[in-house]
């Protein structure tokens, strides 16, 4: 357990979207996109938020950045001055002075850069907005940032359309770093890139974390990518966190049946490992009409009566390993092990 306070602590975060129907657009229900989740991120570490589409991971990220207003809950962020603020509660205006301490890296390297602005204008914009009035100063900082993300400073007069996806993603990272943020929220930053380029961006993010002491919240669906970048992993299913653990633990010894199924479903890049996979039956639950009890029970092989009626709470079953499963202590699940199944020699 950390001695110092975490950089970010999310407590009982909820975000519901009203479902409207009919001519009068009456609210007929609530889509529980994020349904009472809590976690923390320590300074300098990477926490990954994984899950399938619609599980609420992106909504969570946007609530933390206050791009979306949470329905309920606290988002406690430790500012550079050492104070703790609740970004969920502050009015937007009062949040402004702290905004630059949390920045975002986007999934789509094409829509995240304004095609009508030069690279210089894109990266310098946060500087301009935060009071760096001298153009020379801005130019110098942009040069620094471009070198930091391994791009040539001469590129700054070019427009985004002159760059490949991987290069654009570097530009997006440079922009996010412009204001020396402490927290970077990266929403699927490599999933739109070609596989041979993914590794470059992942390595860059690891390097930058070491160089600048950054803290990452890494939102992703790809468990292989997550394994490379994270210290800890939180797994989400239908708006809830089902398991949080250190990366190695979670992959080797998952305690939630959903985590196990997720790990097992990842296609392994080795034809000799075409093994028996756990193929989940059925479909992901509808967050507008979630099942009773544990949301995962209709697809779970280990479900008992209690799972159908009672919603499991997140419980710490080992130091740092929390699971929301009634049977977490009694069932043994299969993870993936780097020792027995090393990567194919190439």
């Amino acid at each position: 357990m950390p001695i110092e306070a975490p950089l970010l602590e999310v407590r009982n975060l909820k975000r519901f979207f009203p479902i409207r129907r009919g001519l009068l657009r009456r609210v007929v229900g609530q889509l529980r996109a994020v349904d009472d989740i809590s976690f923390h991120i320590n300074r300098g570490e990477t926490l990954s938020l994984v899950g399938e589409s619609g599980c609420g991971k992106t909504t969570t990220a946007r609530c933390i950045l206050r791009a979306l207003k949470p329905t309920a809950g606290e988002v406690l962020f430790q500012t550079a001055a050492g104070d703790v603020i609740d970004t969920a509660a502050l009015p937007k205006g009062a949040l402004q002075p702290f905004r630059h301490q949390m920045q975002m890296i986007f999934q789509d390297p094409f829509s995240s850069l304004n095609p009508r602005m030069t690279v210089f204008d894109i990266i310098a914009e946060p500087l301009l907005a935060n009071g760096v009035k001298s153009r020379d100063q801005r130019r110098q900082r942009v040069e620094e940032l471009l070198e930091l993300v391994r791009l040539r400073p001469e590129f700054m007069q070019r427009f985004p359309h002159a760059f490949s996806g991987g290069q654009r993603q570097r530009i997006g990272i440079a922009r996010a770093l412009a204001l020396n943020p402490s927290l970077i929220v990266a929403d699927e930053p490599v999933s739109a890139l070609d596989v041979s380029v993914q590794a470059q961006i992942l390595n860059l993010m690891l390097d930058l974390q070491d160089e600048l002491g950054l803290t990452y919240l890494f939102v992703a669906h790809d468990l292989s990518v997550v394994k490379h970048i994270s210290d800890r992993v939180a797994v989400m299913y239908v708006g809830k966190i089902v398991e949080i653990a250190e990366t190695d633990r979670l992959f080797k010894a998952p305690k939630h049946p959903y985590t196990e199924a997720l790990l097992s479903a990842v296609p392994k890049p080795d034809p000799r490992l075409r093994s028996e996979r756990i193929v989940l039956a059925g479909e992901v639950a509808d967050p507008a009409q979630p099942p009773t009890g544990c949301y995962f029970h209709p697809r779970c092989a280990h479900a008992i009566d209690r799972c159908r009626s009672e919603t499991p709470k997140l419980e710490e079953i080992q130091p740092g390993h929390v699971v929301a499963c009634h049977r977490a202590r009694e069932i043994t699940l299969k993870g993936v092990d780097a020792q027995s199944n090393g990567k194919p020699s190439a």
Partner: peptide, 9 residues
């Protein structure tokens, strides 16, 4: 890119 600008203040 609009969200990015908002986040940058």
């Amino acid at each position: 890119f609009v969200l990015a600008a908002e986040l940058a203040g």
